[in-house]
Structure formats: structure tokens, C-alpha cells
Simulated assay, not measured.
Amino acid sequence: MADQKPPKRCRLVLITPANHSADDLEQKIGAALEGGDVASLIVPIFDLHEAEFQSLCGRIVAIAHAKGVAVIISGDTRIAARVKADGVHMEAGKAALADAIDRLQDKMNVGAGGIKTRDEALDLGEARPDYIFFGRFNYDNTPEPHPRNLGLAEWWAEMIEIPCILLGGSQVDSVVTAAETGAEYVALSAAVFSEGLDPREQVSRVNELLDQKAPRFES
């Protein structure tokens, strides 16, 4: 939260879910951000048209910034700039990533995703993004993080200084497994926003688990 010092351990990143109306997402995100520490929100476009996506992003930025939470827009640097987001998430390869970093490095953060192998991670890392993301949006449909992503995050966190975000599973308890890799951030979507869940309670539980069990980072 804006009035608290960030904890010195793995922190939560939220990914907005697909197939929700803007009004529903506003309600869910507002509730989630009442639940405790959230480092940032990543907003994927999924199957929205550009105008719909820009409108949604603008609404999410307003809610998040009121709580002191950063917003990262996936893929569209123009929309990210228009809605005054804090960053952009790129999955279009090294050339597009390097171009975005070159143009935006003094204006917003630029992160990299779409990674399946160590070689891909190292290749994108050469562009010096602000973070590397291990996972695929909307694929957090098993209780625990994907084993491949766990392995990549553990290797990356041990070897490379650029922070990484690891996609968690569909259960909040998966954040403990994610944190044990040494990843700086764990991303959740289904575990917080699925039908029948209270986003505020889920975020609160995530932070309890991370406070109790996540390794502490050195100052």
C-alpha cells in the first residue's frame, strides 16, 4: 500500500482476468487492493478491441493509482502512455523489446515475457528490461506453478540481477512454492479473481503466507 514500506520478500503482482466486464473488474480490483500489499497490476488485452482496452486500462489506472499501486499494460505502448500507466509488458521478441526500452526508459518501466527457455530469457535479458516474466497469461489453471516456470525462475533468481515475476497457480498457497525459488514477485490471477472468491480475502491470505514463509531479501 502507498503508506507502507514494501516488505523485503517476494511480493504479489496481480494479473487482471479475461472475460469480465469493466464494471466487474473495477469491483474486483478495488476489493483486491484493500487486501494488503500489491506491487503492481498487469493488464493483458486478451480479445478486447483497442478502444475497449484503452477505456478499461484508464479505469484500472485510476483505481490502482489511488492505492499507490503501479499498472503495467501488456503489449501496447501507445495505450500505456495515453492512460499514464507505469509500465508496459512486451512479448513481441527482442527487437520490439529493445525499441520500447529505448523509447520509454525515461518514462515508464518495460518488462519482458513470452519466455520458454533459458536461452530466450538470456537473449531478452541482454536488452536490460526492468523485469522478466515466467509464465503465460490465463494459463494459471493448475494449483501450483508450472514446473518449467519454477525451474526458470529459480535459475534466473540465482544467476541474474534483473528481477523476475513468476506466475503462480490457481491456489493462493502456490505463492509459497513461488517464493522459494527466490523470485522477487509472484503473479496471481485465478487464485484471486475466480468466481466465488473474495479478492480482498485472497490478497490478505497471500500476504499472510508470504510474511510467514517467504525467504527474506537482503537490504
Results as ranks from 00 to 15, higher is better:
5 K>Y: 10
7 P>L: 05
8 K>E: 12
8 K>C: 05
9 R>P: 03
14 L>A: 03
23 D>A: 14
29 I>K: 00
30 G>H: 08
35 G>H: 01
40 S>Q: 11
42 I>A: 09
43 V>R: 08
45 I>Q: 15
45 I>H: 05
47 D>E: 13
47 D>A: 08
49 H>G: 14
52 E>K: 11
54 Q>A: 12
55 S>H: 11
58 G>Y: 09
62 A>E: 14
64 A>C: 08
66 A>K: 12
71 V>Q: 10
72 I>M: 14
72 I>S: 09
73 I>P: 07
73 I>C: 04
73 I>W: 00
73 I>L: 08
76 D>E: 08
80 A>H: 00
82 R>H: 11
86 D>V: 00
92 A>Y: 12
93 G>N: 06
93 G>L: 04
96 A>G: 03
98 A>Y: 01
98 A>N: 07
98 A>R: 10
99 D>A: 14
100 A>Y: 04
103 R>E: 14
103 R>A: 11
104 L>K: 02
105 Q>M: 10
106 D>C: 07
108 M>R: 08
112 A>V: 01
114 G>T: 01
115 I>G: 06
116 K>Q: 13
118 R>Q: 12
119 D>K: 14
122 L>N: 07
123 D>A: 15
125 G>F: 02
128 R>N: 12
128 R>C: 11
129 P>D: 10
131 Y>S: 05
131 Y>K: 03
131 Y>G: 00
132 I>D: 02
134 F>A: 02
138 N>G: 09
138 N>F: 08
139 Y>G: 09
140 D>A: 08
143 P>I: 04
145 P>A: 03
147 P>N: 04
147 P>M: 04
150 L>F: 02
152 L>S: 01
156 W>V: 01
156 W>D: 02
158 E>A: 15
158 E>W: 06
160 I>C: 11
163 P>C: 05
177 T>L: 13
178 A>K: 00
182 G>S: 01
182 G>I: 00
182 G>E: 07
182 G>H: 03
183 A>E: 07
183 A>T: 09
197 L>V: 08
200 R>L: 14
201 E>K: 15
203 V>C: 09
204 S>I: 06
204 S>E: 15
210 L>I: 01
213 K>T: 07
215 P>A: 05
